[in-house]
Design a protein around this nucleic acid. Structure first.
Length: 609
RNA sequence: GCGCUGGUAGCUCAAUGGAUAGAGCAUCAGACUACGGAUCUGAGGGUUGCAGGUUCGAGUCCUGCCCGGCGCGCCA
């Protein structure tokens, strides 16, 4: 279920980002000294280079120009100004001002705002704005192959991220439920005298339909009579023939039933399932308008929009609107659906999470939308992504082992369900070894979260334009920068929370000012940077930006918790109940932020694993 | 040919125009009966594809090349 973003109240530029809660006094002091607006300083903070032990760096180049000083001189001059602030130590290092913050100061600035840790992954940047996200969009009567995970989970993560940033989100599954394939399927169905009962009895109804399609296609190739039947059924379907539409509906329902099982496993939902078929009889007005505006032209029998002359020389070919036989193409359908979506949702942005191979298609119809004068033409974004490659040890035929597109070593297309099931099995095996106390249905439930999470995170952690290189051994080795690593950090925090009440039954609320260690500060700073990661994810449509922020948080958490291994007093559950209570506040905030961040990416964070 | 995309450590990838380019995996060495070790600490490992240019400063921006993937008219 979607969680409503808490109302953060009125904001000033200084608290626009959570990190600014810490840097605001610094920015003000520096700005006053230099004589520029504080907001100009606020945008300058950078991460210190590796060799410099500091929390933040302030490059002084631009400020020096404004002040009319040399950068190193300004940095030196700023040292006393900034060091005068409580909880800040400043050191000049050439043209940089390196800032070290006192853990206590960081904690008191941040923790009061994180009584609900989920606030760390919230923003109001998109308040009042609406976005449509078109994602997943599989063809019916075909399996969800492994590569479908990309559009499905990138889109799902973006929908969550936009929502967390204040946008009103509509999730759209633009089903591929139209085309000549269905005429063939109907012809095959009739020819073989199949029944609904037979379909329903199949262990996998999509496999049943897929096999039927393969048989009838083969038959059609060998027998012109069969091909003719398929053509007739395609025509009947287009004409709204009752029997044809009835069978088409059966195929569609059967497919959606299978899809929903996988969407449920992935935790993905949609607000709209309007597919291509929905728009099939609604393209007339658009075609009329295109013609009325003089945008159409006959070319080799087809109807096109001549983009090279109308939209600029960056286009080399016209956009096809209608086939020579009068049938419409998918650019026409996309435009019609877009008009419909704008009429219904008045979106401020509309995302199409579709592989990069279709870049040209989107460039073309976006350009047509512009030529039509659509007010939303510049609000459309093609969110492209790379392909899924699988490692192939034995390609045969003298080929080198290497990455191959979406196929197993046997050359078979990998199904999404198969990959998820194997991932779940492997997760269950690890659990049996690492945590044998968890058994039965609970183990099965958690193994689903961990196995699916491993595959999903593997898909989201890098820039989406990159191809995803999938190796079971890597995605599921459960170590390193993986979904299970994040989930494990979450589970450790949960475990400590469970034990806290027993250890310190009468502890108070916890005073942030008591948090004084470097490990605690690192966790706090990682929490403070999460909001910027979320906003970057939304601005650039890159879920990986949030994934990177969560990895940094989890690493900080793991280092913190492990530091207690050799030192009982460094643990959250230390002997001092007051200190323990303060640490527990950080545990809770971090756990809630991490769990919420994972939810945004589409992972479940179990309390044990 | 044109377009999109990628080229950074052995492998997989990070890096709002900022310092000495960072992580994970793998390798090696450690911590510790461990508030959950599915952990942590450390080491080795780099001419950021090549060549120019802009800039106080370039992995990042510009120009030209090289290599890979994908796309480029009646499928979607």
């Amino acid at each position: 279920m979607a969680v409503e973003a808490p109302d953060p109240g009125p904001r000033t530029p200084d608290d626009f980002l959570m990190l600014s809660l810490i840097t605001a006094p610094i920015s003000h002091a520096v700005a006053a000294f230099v004589g520029v607006p504080a907001a100009q300083v606020a945008g300058l903070y950078a991460a210190p280079a590796k060799g410099f032990a500091a929390d933040l760096a302030l490059p002084c180049f631009q400020l020096a120009k404004a002040k009319g000083m040399a950068p190193p001189a300004l940095a030196t001059a700023l040292v006393p100004v900034v060091s005068a602030l409580p909880g800040v130590t400043a050191v000049a290092a050439g043209p940089f001002l390196n800032l070290t913050l006192a853990p206590t100061a960081v904690a008191t600035a941040l923790l009061p705002g994180l009584t609900d840790g989920r606030a760390a992954v919230r923003s109001t940047a998109g308040a009042g704005k609406k976005v449509c996200v078109d994602f997943s969009s599989p063809n019916i009567a075909k399996h969800l192959a492994f590569h479908h995970i990309r559009s499905t989970m990138i889109g799902n993560a973006l929908a969550h991220c936009y929502q967390a940033a204040g946008w009103q989100v509509t999730r759209i599954n633009f089903l591929g439920d139209w085309g000549t394939a269905f005429g063939r399927l109907i012809a095959g169905w009739k020819r073989e005298g199949l029944t609904l009962e037979q379909l329903r009895a199949a262990p996998d109804q999509v496999t049943f339909l897929n096999d039927l399609y393969v048989r009838i296609s083969k038959a059609a190739k060998e027998d012109a009579q069969v091909e003719e039947e398929a053509r007739r059924w395609s025509k009947a379907l287009e004409d709204g023939d009752t029997e044809a539409r009835g069978l088409w509906q059966i195929f569609k329902d059967a497919s959606l039933g299978e899809f929903q099982r996988i969407y449920a496993l992935l935790g993905v939902t949609f607000d709209s399932w309007k597919g291509e078929a929905h728009y099939e009889d609604k393209m007339g007005p658009l075609l009329t308008e295109l013609a009325a505006k003089g945008l159409l032209k006959e070319d080799q029998g087809a109807t096109v929009v001549d983009l090279p002359t109308l939209a600029g020389k960056q286009f080399k070919k016209p956009a096809l609107i209608k086939r020579a036989d009068g049938g419409t193409l998918y650019a026409t359908r996309d435009l019609t659906a877009c008009d419909d979506r704008f009429a219904e949702f008045a979106f401020d942005r509309s995302l199409y999470v579709v592989d990069l191979g279709q870049s040209l298609h989107f460039q073309e119809w976006f350009a047509v939308a512009k030529l039509l004068g659509r007010p939303f033409a510049d609000r459309l974004r093609h969110v492209g992504f790379g392909v899924v490659l699988m490692w192939n040890d034995e390609p045969g035929e003298g080929l080198e082992p290497g990455w191959a597109k979406g196929r197993t070593r046997a050359g078979k297309t990998m199904l999404l369900r198969e990959v998820l099931e194997e991932a779940i099995d492997r997760a269950a095996t690890v659990m049996a070894e690492k945590n044998p106390d968890i058994t039965g249905e609970e183990r099965a439930r958690i193994a689903r979260a961990v196995g699916v999470g491993a595959v999903v995170f593997n898909d989201l952690k890098n820039s989406r334009s990159n191809d995803v290189k999938f190796k079971f051994e890597d995605a599921l080795n459960m170590q390193g920068e993986t979904g299970p690593y994040l989930q494990f950090a979450h589970a450790r925090l949960c475990s400590i929370e469970r034990k806290f009440a027993e250890a310190h039954p009468n502890a108070g609320a916890g005073d942030p000012a008591l948090l004084a260690t470097e490990h605690e500060k690192t966790v706090l700073l990682a929490l403070a940077r999460l909001q910027a990661a979320l906003e970057k994810a939304v601005d650039t449509d890159e879920p990986g930006a949030l994934a990177t922020g969560l990895l940094a948080l989890a690493a900080a958490i793991a280092a913190w918790l492990t530091s207690g291994n050799g030192d009982v007093e460094a643990r959250v559950l230390c002997s001092d109940a007051t200190l323990a209570a303060a640490r527990l506040r950080l545990v809770r905030a971090a756990r809630e932020a991490l769990g919420e961040g994972l939810r945004l990416l589409g992972l479940i964070a179990p309390e044990r694993m």
